[in-house]
Design a protein around this nucleic acid. Structure first.
Lengths: 101, 101
DNA sequence: ACTTTTGTTCGTAAATTCACGAATATGACA
DNA sequence: TGTCATATTCGTGAATTTACGAACAAAAGT
């Protein structure tokens, strides 16, 4: 046996929890919603709209990036953020199964 | 205007984030998954299965309860936990809309 | 070179989370 | 009225999250 299949908490539980954690703040929900509606956006757009400091926004974007839900493309001097399609779809799949949708 | 409709972050964003936060830990994912499969369970059952102290389990159950996703019914000396059907359905609805499922 | 624009990182503080064992509460049963 | 079984709450640490402004970095235009 190469993997421990006895474990109660699986990688799937951890992955789903990780995605849920990324979604566990209203600001990040807003950003994801925004991106799932409109192709992409610049973080400057978000700074203008959202009632938080740009450094705070940066942290939220970082959290979304590290969870794999978004990705940034440099368009100097801006950065264009989009959903990470692949992982977004994976997250959807996980939630769909989990929620029995 | 009685409510502030200018606000970028709405109650819906907050509610969804709140549900996501409840789901943001593998143990809690496991518990929810367990309950969505098998009607109900006793926290003792979970203590036996899960690799955490019962006090820690209690905290996770509390978090799920305070998010409204589960409810406990006393069957002395045990407590029977079930999904809170109403809120679980609401959460599903929110995620469904949000994820465009 | 200097300045402007854009965004990240740093430093810091307050709050929250997660974990544990010990202590407590509650009701059933002897 | 003890005692047992079951869970929660308390007390405590370590780690993480969230927020802010200040400082920094990078690249483009002047």
């Amino acid at each position: 046996m190469t993997t421990d299949n006895q474990k109660v908490i699986t990688e799937d539980h951890k992955k789903l929890a990780r995605y849920a954690k990324a979604m566990s703040h209203p600001i990040r929900i807003y950003i994801l919603e925004h991106l799932s509606k409109q192709a992409c956006c610049y973080s400057g757009d978000l700074t203008d709209i959202l009632p938080i400091a740009k450094s705070t926004l940066s942290q939220h974007l970082k959290e979304l990036r590290s969870a794999g839900l978004i990705q940034g493309e440099i368009e100097t001097p801006k950065i264009k953020y989009c959903l990470n399609k692949e992982n977004w779809e994976e997250a959807k799949k996980y939630f769909k199964l989990f929620l029995n949708l």
